[in-house]
Design a protein around this nucleic acid. Structure first.
Length: 692
RNA sequence: GCCGCUGUAGCUCAGUGGUAGAGCGCACCCUUGGUAAGGGUGAGGUCGAGAGUUCAAAUCUCUCCAGCGGCUCCA
């Protein structure tokens, strides 16, 4: 007879098998009513699950004790809502075949194959939601039943969906001896779906839901397989929670770098220039320049040397590096020399022949560089090296071009031309660990100055079962260990991911989320044994013999485009003084104060502060509103009173009222200090010292 | 590349077959104002591009281009 251990350690004994719901009832009927599921021996289960042996049991309620969403409850709710949506869709579009409908972090989706002559459109959402509301209103129980595998399989077969049949096969392959089905209501009478569950007790528990969007997807994620329609939705226990979620999405959109980029005039993408090609406008250029010089300074401290290399290189260079033709699909097409072109044209060369000629190397041409490494290798190899020279660290803000699929392009975060904060380190095998650590130190320094703490670190290791890797296994072991140890020195949580290494070496990636919750890889540090081999690089060792150096590719911030895109969102457009395109705006109270305002602006310009003057014929309230919307760090109001005292009235971004008045000279020195120290000393602090 | 949605003034957007609109921004005038929008006047548009249907197209159809969400991809 079951002895059930509850989370507080107490044990309940029952004479007969009981359901999780019965246990809840035995504690209290209010609790039972609040329950949506149960964790039985840590496994999320239906509330109706019958317990016939000893176990631990934790009841899952809509909210945790501290009124937060319970992730398990949300999982049950959203999984269940996916069923309700699927039923509604099948009522509206007969012949729609269900494929797979899992819950997600913020909702759920259902992949569905629609008849070709009846695709789902956004215009159908209203009708779907209306059907869903009916099903919720009917408050039908989710009823689980299981069939022995072969019996279940013949049931699924009789229903004629290859997708569900495939799901059944997969369940079997994963070790299931039976198949479970969930009826929304009564089996045999109401709608049902092959499903492993679990679910909330009944549709009435779904408090609020919304069909969000449509997308296409591939069956099994395989682009050569069937194209499915993915319908996204979300659900909450209360309408209030749903409204709050939708508000959060609206708020996040305001931080979106594409929205702020326009509003704050940071960058422009012009379709006549080309998709995915960023035009840095003056404001954005200031941010980029400040960041680049900061990085450059840190690089110099670490013994890097900056180089400049051109944007193109000969095709043959990329044959040696292996970029061409292997990655030709993600590159802009090669530039063919004019004489070759003319000759080929005379010979009546077809496109296919041209492509073959290029692959075999019979045609020379140039390529927009997809990576900086070949150029840097040639810089390294332009002179012989002794082991005493190593490591050689060559850095460049190098612009590269890649042919990203059109559907992938996204503001500044996914583009076709971008500038990496790239560097290549050439070192002895023994120096790898130290150099990798140096790269991570750089990341840590710069992230901490920017206040970026919300990133994750991924250590990509080789998949021991795969033979795709190049290089000596002993070196791999050492390099992987070096990466692992370096990641530990960062003091940030990291995950080791076997199979995520490049084919030529292990790597460390830095991943951040954007406002919509999408993850982007920023920086990467990669150990490479392959390219030194391909380019036959060498240095002379203490034994007077030639040795092969190891290369480390590192672009700790990825690209200036992506990094600044993420940075815009990180600061919600309100850059700190050192990065702000416009650091100070001077607001004269009226024309009468324009002369003094000009004087103030000149004093700021004289010390290199980016200051502007708003001499529009408006009241100061309006100027403050405009200045605040542009997220300018300091607005200084000057009127006759200030002019008389040679003072300024200071207003800092994000503070509702003004900080007070300060002598002009003090403000100039305080903001210079804030600029120079990247915010370690601020104008605000100056006010506080004065008060103290 | 795939599916869906969107494209109207510099920006945000309204406009369902019959003379292209609003707010913000911009210019000028009035106002000379002390901490989140003072008032007025005005300029500004091949309605993403091309083709079609129609007496008539921003509006309906098709093709293309671009953006957005997702899928796939990312050396």
């Amino acid at each position: 007879m079951p002895q059930i251990t509850l989370p507080d350690g107490s044990v309940k004994s029952f004479e007969h098998p009981v359901s999780a719901f019965d246990v809840a009832m035995s504690i209290g009927d209010r609790l039972a009513r609040a329950c949506v599921g149960a964790l039985i021996d840590e496994e999320l289960s239906d509330l109706s699950t019958v317990i016939d042996k000893d176990c631990t049991l934790a009841l899952v309620t809509e909210k945790t004790r501290d009124k937060q969403d319970d992730p398990n409850a949300m999982y049950l709710l959203r999984h269940s809502t996916a069923h309700v949506m699927a039923e509604a869709i099948q009522r509206i579009v007969p012949g729609a075949m269900l494929v797979y409908g899992p819950p997600l972090e913020n909702g759920f989706y259902y992949d569905i194959a629609f008849p070709e002559d009846r695709p789902l459109k956004e215009g159908d959402f209203e009708a779907i939601e209306a059907e869903m509301a009916k099903i919720v209103e009917e408050d039908r129980p989710f009823t689980r039943y299981e069939l022995e595998y072969s019996e279940g399989l013949s049931k699924v077969k009789s229903e004629g969906s290859k997708y569900k049949l495939d799901n059944a096969h997969r369940a079997h392959e994963a070790g299931s001896l039976s198949l479970s089905f969930y009826a929304t209501g009564e089996p045999g009478r109401d709608w049902e779906d092959l499903c492993r569950g679990p679910h909330v007790p009944s549709t009435g528990r779904i408090g609020a839901f919304k069909v969000m969007s449509l997308a296409s997807s591939y069956w099994h994620g395989d682009e050569n397989s069937d194209r499915l329609t993915r319908v996204y939705g979300t659900a909450f226990f209360s309408k209030k929670d749903l409204a709050a979620y939708l508000d959060r999405i609206e708020e996040a959109k305001k931080r979106d770098h594409r929205v702020l980029g326009k509003k704050l005039k940071l960058f422009h993408i012009d379709e006549t220039v080309g998709q995915g090609l960023i035009l840095w406008t003056p404001n954005g250029s200031v941010v980029r320049k400040e960041l680049q010089s900061f990085i450059s300074m840190e690089l110099a401290k670490q013994g890097y040397h900056e180089v400049f290399t051109p944007h193109i290189g000969k095709l043959d260079l990329y044959r040696t590096s292996g970029h061409f033709p292997y990655y030709a699909e993600s590159q802009f097409p090669p530039l063919i020399e004019r004489d070759h072109m003319a000759q080929l044209s005379e010979e009546g060369c077809s496109c296919a022949q041209l492509s073959n000629h290029m692959t075999t190397g019979e045609i020379e041409g140039f390529m927009l560089k997809p990576m900086n490494c070949p150029h840097h290798i040639k810089v390294f190899d332009s002179q012989p090296h002794s082991y005493k020279d190593l490591p050689v660290r060559l850095a460049e803000f190098g612009t590269v071009y890649r042919w990203e699929q059109s559907g992938e392009l996204n503001g500044m975060t996914r583009v076709r031309g971008f500038t990496q904060d790239d560097a290549h380190l050439f070192c002895t095998p023994d120096q790898v660990a130290h150099e990798v650590q140096g790269c991570l130190l750089l990341v840590k320094t710069i992230f901490s100055v920017l206040g970026m703490e919300d990133y994750r670190v991924r250590v990509g290791l080789r998949d021991p079962d795969s033979g795709k890797y190049t290089g000596d296994p002993a070196n791999w072991d050492k390099a992987e260990q070096a990466c692992r140890e370096a990641a530990q020195t960062l003091g940030v949580p990291f995950t080791e991911e076997p199979g995520e290494a490049a084919f030529y070496g292990p790597k460390i990636d830095f991943v951040v989320k954007d406002v919509i919750g999408r993850e982007w890889q920023l920086g990467t540090v990669q150990v490479d044994y392959n390219l030194p081999e391909r380019f036959d690089l060498s240095y002379v060792g203490p034994d007077n013999e030639k040795h092969r150096p190891v290369m480390i590719h590192r672009a700790p911030f990825g690209s200036m485009e992506r990094f600044i895109g993420v940075l815009i969102e990180h600061f919600a457009g309100a850059f700190p003084v050192w990065l702000a395109p416009e650091q100070v705006r001077v607001l004269p109270i009226s024309e009468k104060s324009n002369d003094y305002a000009h004087e103030v602006m000149s004093a700021l310009h004289a010390v290199g502060i980016r200051a502007t003057l708003d001499d529009h014929d408006q009241r100061v309230q309006a100027k403050i509103k405009n200045g605040s919307e542009m997220k300018i760090p300091y607005l200084i109001v000057v009127g006759p009173r200030d002019a008389e005292n040679r003072a300024v009235s200071v207003r800092a971004f994000g503070i509702e009222k003004d900080l007070g008045s300060m002598p002009l000279d003090s403000f100039v020195s305080a903001i210079s200090e804030e600029y120079r120290t990247k915010g370690r000393s601020t104008v605000r602090q100056r006010f506080e010292t004065v008060k103290a």
